[in-house]
């Protein structure tokens, strides 16, 4: 019954995006399990969730723990975290991985606290060291550095994983997995948080995550007024505008536009990066960009080193120059 080396992946499926994150983490868990020897298990809570159970098996889960109950039909932080804690105490997995969605970021800390174990936030990679310990790799110190973090004593080892960090495996209909159906315990305390209303309200249509061209601006644009020119450029290029954290904190643009940790991951064909030095919180979200054009006065900025084309100049001036050129070049 006890499963000391298993890796658990929390089945977060509430919307399409969250479900992709679960599949991405499953793929990595499969890699890690080849070293550790344990099983890859998904944990799914909800009502009528058979399709997710099947999907997680098709994506690498060898075992799925399911609690399917009408009372779990809506996501509930308190009930879900207590349930996960209880299962973890009973089955003793070595590791629990949770997607760093908003829900995951709220639930995982509570589970870690209940279990008395460590938790690393928003990992951008995971490894197994020689002793079989999970090495959790996450941005640190304001994104200027990357830290390798372990939970050497307590178990399970827990981490939340940034969406888009890993690549999901192809769907395999022939994959076989064991399903363990568990009842909802009768003695779970009542939820102290009351849901008055919940409405699915996806963000605006052309999401920055799916845009072919993304124009990102940093503090190097100079001012809020100059930053706004990026929207003119975006309009000409059918692009979406993203921003770094200092820009969002300075309120040049809303938090929705944040690219990087606590914000969005992007995968454009072209990324144009204006006046961005390149803290890891930001750059880790750019690894899937096909072609990067960076503009910065400082040729040694990390962003400039990452770029395919690095233009050493004032970001605002180049922005204005490109706008002017495009107005002439776009055929009517």
């Amino acid at each position: 019954m006890k499963s000391a080396k298993d890796i658990w992946v929390f089945g977060d499926y509430r919307n399409y995006f969250q479900n992709r994150v679960t599949l991405q983490i499953l793929a990595r868990a499969v890699d890690l399990a080849t070293t550790t020897g344990g099983k890859v298990c998904a944990v799914v809570f909800g009502h009528n969730v058979n399709n997710y159970v099947a999907e997680y098996i098709a994506h690498g889960a060898q075992k799925v723990y399911v609690v399917d109950d009408e009372r779990l039909s809506l996501y509930s932080l308190e009930t879900y975290s207590r349930l996960l804690t209880r299962l973890a105490k009973e089955y003793k997995p070595e590791t629990i991985l949770v997607g760093a969605t908003r829900f995951g970021q709220e639930m995982a800390p509570r589970v870690a606290k209940q279990l008395g174990t460590g938790l690393t936030a928003d990992c951008i990679d995971l490894e197994i060291d020689k002793k079989g310990i999970l090495v959790q790799i996450a941005p640190s110190f304001g994104g200027n550095l990357i830290a390798k973090i372990i939970t050497p004593v307590q178990k399970p080892q827990m981490a939340t994983i940034r969406p888009g960090t890993f690549q999901e495996q192809p769907h395999d209909d022939n994959a076989i997995g064991e399903t363990i159906i568990l009842p909802l315990p009768k003695d779970l305390p009542e939820d102290r948080i009351r849901l008055i209303s919940s409405e699915y309200r996806p963000a605006k249509k052309q999401k920055i995550e799916d845009a072919d061209i993304v124009i990102c601006g940093g503090r190097g644009m100079g001012s809020k007024g100059k930053f706004k020119k990026l929207f003119d450029l975006a309009c000409l290029m059918n692009a979406e505008v993203g921003a770094t954290r200092p820009v969002v904190y300075s309120e040049w643009i809303s938090h929705e536009a944040l690219v990087g940790q606590a914000g969005k991951n992007i995968k454009p064909k072209i990324l144009m990066s204006f006046g961005i030095s390149g803290a890891i919180q930001h750059t880790a979200a750019l690894t899937d960009a096909d072609f990067i054009i960076a503009i910065n006065k400082n040729p040694n900025a990390t962003m400039m080193k990452m770029a395919d084309v690095a233009i050493v100049a004032d970001a605002n001036q180049v922005c204005l120059g490109i706008i002017k050129a495009l107005k002439e070049k776009i055929r009517d």
Partner: peptide, 30 residues
């Protein structure tokens, strides 16, 4: 419960094209 065992700087070694000069020239070149 957690322990930081290593801290390092993100390294990037992309072979890239660096453009320098006047803005007008840079935009044309781009």
């Amino acid at each position: 419960p957690t322990r930081i065992i290593d801290v390092f700087s993100p390294t990037t070694q992309n072979e890239n094209r660096v453009l320098k000069g006047a803005v007008k020239k840079l935009v044309d070149q781009l």
